[in-house]
Design a binder for these strands. Structure first.
Length: 115
RNA sequence: CGAGUAGGUCGGGCAGUCGCGUGCGUCUAUGCCGAAAGGUGACGUAUGAGGAAAGUCCGAGCUCCAUAGGGCAAGGAUAACGGGUAACGCCCGCCGAAGGCGACUUCAGGAAAAGUGCAACAGAGAUAUACCGCCUCGAAAGCUAUUGCUUUGGUGUCAAGUUGAUGAAUUGUCGCUUGCUUUUUUCAAACCCGGCGAAAGCCUGCUUUCGCCGGAAGAGGAGGAGCAGCGACAAACAUGAGGCUUGUCGCUUUAGCGGCAAGUUGAUAAAUUGUCGCUUGCUCCGACGAGGUAAGGGUGGAAACGUGAGGUAAGAGCUCACGGGUGAGCAGGGAACUGUCUCAUCCUGCAAACUCUAUCCGGAGCAACACCGUAUAGGAGGACAUCAAGGCUGGCCCGGCUGUCCUCGGGUAGGUGGCUAAAGCGCCGUGGCAACACGUCGCGUAGAUAGAUGACUGUCCAAGACAGAACUCGGCUUACAGACCUGCUCGCAAC
RNA sequence: GCGCUGUUAGCUCAGCUGGAUAGAGCGUGUGGCUACGGACCACAAGGUCGGGGAUUCGAAUUCUCCACAGCGCG
């Protein structure tokens, strides 16, 4: 993930929840906001409601992978928090990838595809 | 072959592409970010979650705080005995108890004879009782010529409580076998008697012990018949009711059986009143007090150890025989413990009730702790300024604070260390029943800090369960698809 | 990392220093009352006392191992 760093401070998360645009599906929830730099920042949240430690780890890794593979198709200069919901523990990797693309498209974060 | 029991090993494999953490090496990235400490890239190479990483139930290392050293109290933990270990509440062996045909499994398994407490209901009585009963002594009443024998309690328009339409009593069927009666048969411990045989002892014909046979006695157990009781179901009862308990009368060979009042409101249900009987208390009258006893008395988890005999006024481990428990001695064993021994005997259970005995425990935790440490705020000391102006304190004046620079110490955000070589793992050998210890050789194997293992494709099979390191070890507990190996036990079959 | 509390009827709570049929209020059902409904009166149903094991004659209560829920400190 060359052009991306992770969000670490609690303040950044708070700001996104409060002021970011959101989009929700049964599997994921995404909060996003433009920043003024040329790189993206991403934060992944998986709460204890989702499952025990190994389940949470698996969900987080799948979300990371789904973002990494599709990184080039995102716009630049975005802060984004991806929250895993309870269903995310049950579905496959492909489902998560599909949901991620669907939600980001709704928010208008994807680059226009040249037809 | 089947069933079981104890222990151990493994916990998807292989290949390819992309991606992540860490170590090492190379590269003018000698660049960039930051005030500093420090952080940051590309390529190559090596390596990268568990048997429980979990729960946090114990024990240690390590770090800081407290503490001269030791003891007592409080609080907590552990609990047969011996050993292992750095230590433990863990492990091994062994003893005892319980369960299992057995291999084997389970046990908070010290003290109830130091003391306190608890044991509902039922029951006369619950750790000691005296209600009934039995017996003695005296008293009174009645009968009798006397010795003597019999009896020693009733009563009330008093008060309170109690079951029944949620179906009583009755009848029928089935079941239980709780109590009692009777009868017959059978089994039967110890004690007692007789006979035969054997052994031992001496006083040489007796004693003791053991075995066999028979007799007597017959606690107790089993069976049959009957009576009562209890439970279930059904019938009948609304044209309807009593039961339990107690008393009295009658009948019967026994257990036992039978008889002994009536209404109101209301459709029903609910409800109210009355009556009868019983128990306890109270009132009145009257002709009974003192003591002994723990055999018997339907209960209960448990009733002064059980059975029999003697003994006694009646009785009692009061005495004796047999059998059990506990304590002390003796013998065996390293100890718990064991015993055809001796003596004593205060003989219910509960200590996961208080308590007593023995042993152990200072507290907190890697977000510990150490180092570096900016701006701002703030502490201590020193130097300069305090001419002037402003602000605060103050009614006013004086005084103090508020300024700049330097030094010192603490220390927030942040960063680095702590951080992985450790009471380490594996093979073999020696000692030991074992846990384990010692020795040789080899390996030495994650270290993040918003927290690294994922995705896709192919292939094989038994089709992949429980589950993710966060300072580190030793245990325990809990979760877990399956696969494999070893020892042992029981049953069946064949040789 | 270190600690604490709770779980009882559909809901909210008693009972916890062992003693047998586990209670109360609200709610639910049935009947009465009323022309009808509410209120009121009476009755009833509804409980693996979070789960397993142990101690005891006897466990909701004591001990222990789990599960779930909630809270605190750094």
């Amino acid at each position: 993930m060359k052009n991306t760093v992770s969000i670490k401070r609690n303040n950044d998360f708070r700001a996104l929840y409060k002021r970011g645009k959101s989009s929700v599906s049964p599997v994921l929830a995404i909060y996003a906001r433009k920043n003024k730099t040329t790189s993206n920042r991403i934060g992944i949240t998986v709460s204890t409601k989702v499952g025990k430690a190994h389940v949470r780890n698996r969900v987080r890794r799948r979300i990371r992978e789904a973002y990494r593979i599709n990184e080039t198709s995102f716009k630049k200069g975005i802060d984004m928090v991806i929250v895993a919901r309870v269903r995310a523990a049950e579905v496959t990797f492909h489902e998560i990838e599909k949901n991620l693309l669907l939600l980001t498209e709704k928010l208008g974060l994807l680059l226009e595809v040249q037809e």
